[in-house]
Computed example of a mutant assay.
Amino acid sequence: MRRKLLLFIILGFFALQLGSTASPVEAKPMDSDKKQMIEAREKFFGKEHVNHKTGAIRKDKVILSWFGVSNFAAAINGHVVLLDSWVPRGTSTGYVPTSSDELAQLKPEALFLGHAHFDHAADAAEIISKSGAKLVGTPEHCDYIKGQVEEDVDVACIHAVPEDAEIGTTSQLSFLKGVEITAVKHIHSDLKPNDLSDPSKPLLTVTDLSYAVEHPAKPKEFKKLLHSALTDEEGGSLLYQFKVGKFNLTWNDSAGPIKEDAPELTNVLGDLPKADVQVGAIMGFNQFTNGLRDPRMYIEALQPKVFVPTHHDNWAPPITTKGINYQEALETELERLPKSKRPTLRFISDPDDYVKPEKLTFSINDRKWK
């Protein structure tokens, strides 16, 4: 017994000695992929909204970061998703302060396509390949993107509407926990004769080539842009609503001539829950004859409290111009709405508002957005 007690005392003594001289256990270094993910999320959604250890994002905020045309990184009920997926380049390099690699580092759960023209989807295949994000769109979008990835890459597709769905088809999606998603098949912008019964002043914007001089294009990127522009396919246009609690975010990356091509859409969109925030395209082919009439008709139907213009930045001069050159025309068009139905305008413009989460952060519990 004494020998056992002595042995216990000796072992205890050495344990204390080792404990007093051993170096503290070093914290395991953070995995590099996780570190990149956290850094990317802090950039796109604000450090104050991202857990610096896990990368989790606050669920009481809906946060959008614009990265050109109608492309946004979004945090919705803590879920990270992309709305469209192209970083503008080709006519310039570095005008938009991000890259397709950085978007993949966000580890988005899903990539929503409004339509598949290059300025909305040219980086989709690469981002999905690197991040494993699900693709949400029409079956045609899915087939198109699958044709761009390597053979060993599995593209998980969620069909927002059935194949060959008619204009006005509405579907419900529920794969993001806590988020109710509605998809509506609508129409792409198109040039129409001047509408004399509902006249809006034709909009011809001023060409701005200064950014192309400050951010000259790389020949390789210009070649890729040209190829994408010549080979892309629309694959159908979709409008999405994201509902978290009582908060409703609506996003449409094109505004088509409802009056001429799909008058039934007025009732379909009008039957949707009223949007708290609508992020909607304003540049379109019809602006040259009918100004911003089409975006106004979408606003009339959806009745948002706040309207955020998109698809109005300078990514392809001389066709495009800086967003600020649309502001006066948009304000004039909104004045045509009755004051009680006129949304608050939260205007964004390039390049100052690219990847600026503070511009488009909304509390889902606050019913007074301005």
Rank of each mutant, 00 (worst) to 15 (best):
A229I: 14
F362S: 05
A316P: 00
T98W: 02
E140Y: 15
F112Y: 11
P343C: 08
L230A: 12
S171K: 07
G168L: 10
E102K: 02
W369Q: 15
T207F: 09
P139L: 13
L64V: 02
Q17E: 11
K359E: 09
A116V: 01
I181M: 06
K341E: 15
P202H: 13
E150L: 15
P318Q: 04
G19Y: 09
T91C: 07
S349G: 12
L135I: 09
Q17T: 03
S65D: 07
Y144M: 15
N77C: 06
S349E: 12
I348W: 14
D208S: 08
S363G: 01
E140W: 14
S237A: 05
Q327Y: 07
S340Q: 10
E214T: 06
S210E: 04
Q17S: 06
D84A: 13
L204V: 12
K223R: 02
L5Y: 00
H79V: 15
E180A: 15
S189R: 02
T266R: 01
R296F: 01
D190F: 15
S92L: 13
E39D: 13
S200V: 09
G19T: 04
P88T: 10
A74H: 06
H188F: 11
I167L: 00
P304C: 11
L18N: 05
I348S: 11
L191P: 03
V279L: 15
E140R: 15
G12Q: 03
T91I: 06
K134L: 14
G280F: 08
D84G: 13
F307Y: 15
N314G: 04
D271K: 01
S189W: 15
T320A: 05
P357I: 11
V62A: 03
L196Q: 09
G235P: 01
F247A: 06
M1P: 12
A281V: 07
L269I: 00
S100A: 11
I57P: 06
